[in-house]
Design a protein around this nucleic acid. Structure first.
Ligand code: MN
Ligand code: MN
Ligand code: ZN
Ligand code: ZN
Lengths: 138, 138
DNA sequence: CTAACTAATGCAATTCCATTGCATTGTTTT
DNA sequence: AAAACAATGCAATGGAATTGCATTAGTTAG
């Protein structure tokens, strides 16, 4: 366990401090994206700002990606190994369930190409699908 | 001018008050999506909260749609006539230019279908493309 | 036409979250 | 061990969303 956590940090050149290991373990334990305040609650009474800066560091180093699902606060999920400081490669669809309110990465669901108008060029895409997830379907 | 504005409000059963006409005219004057604080600045010294509630009303009545482009604050743009209280039909791509920072509706650029995992069903989709717009391309 | 009722507005106040400054503590390098 | 650098904790700031409440404008019933 601890090995995996520290390895992930080491892979992206992030010094494995106590706080960072706690946050990384929290992220590893999720099957859905979580917000900053989720992490705060989960790690209370750890300092909020330190968690904030930890997540920022993770984001910059390509350990997590941000998901803006329109639910108020941004959520975070672990990146694939291929992501790095310069480029995130999580070009997958994110799904927000209107029933359980969870937001999931759908790593096998790639964002299709769209044909933009003339002289528009794209560098990044973000697709949020809202609906009912498998667990909430009856 | 005034005729168009009031007609748009009337079409969606929104009482055409002074404030609502001002906000609607502001929206009509844009060629890009604008944030609440943009509207506030544009209509200063009108009351911020009234503008907030006006936009909420417009949104509920299907007059405007929200665009979360990840730039911090949500932006708003006029809907097509087909939108209504029950359903927004703006299933088009939104484009955020990393150069001029503007966010545009691309009404002719529909969001392609994506094949979700088994037992996931979609009710709504939101695709934000980031890149360089035609005006900023050289 | 007026009283009663409903909708819209303006202002105050609250809450939430993001972000920064700064002093302190822990780590690494020389 | 001293100097240099990185991470942390706490205080403070700032922006934006949201709600309560009293006031005003608009509409409707008698
Ligand atoms: Mn993801
Ligand atoms: Mn649009
Ligand atoms: Zn669900
Ligand atoms: Zn541009």
């Amino acid at each position: 366990m601890k090995a995996i956590t520290e390895q992930k940090l080491a892979n992206k050149n992030v010094t494995p401090t106590a706080m960072r290991i706690l946050v990384m373990n929290t992220l590893l334990a999720q099957n859905a994206a979580i917000s900053l305040s989720d992490i705060e609650k989960s790690l209370a009474p750890a300092d909020r700002i330190t968690i904030y800066r930890t997540i920022k560091t993770f984001e910059e180093k390509g350990l997590v990606h941000v998901i803006e699902d329109g639910a108020g606060a941004p959520k975070y999920a672990l990146c694939l190994e291929e992501c790095d400081v310069n480029e995130h490669h999580d070009l997958h669809v994110h799904f927000n369930c209107i029933c359980c309110k969870e937001t999931f990465c759908l790593p096998n669901c790639k964002i299709p190409d769209v044909s933009l108008p003339a002289n528009f060029s794209s560098t990044e895409m973000n697709l949020i699908v809202k609906g009912i997830c498998d667990k909430c379907a009856n």
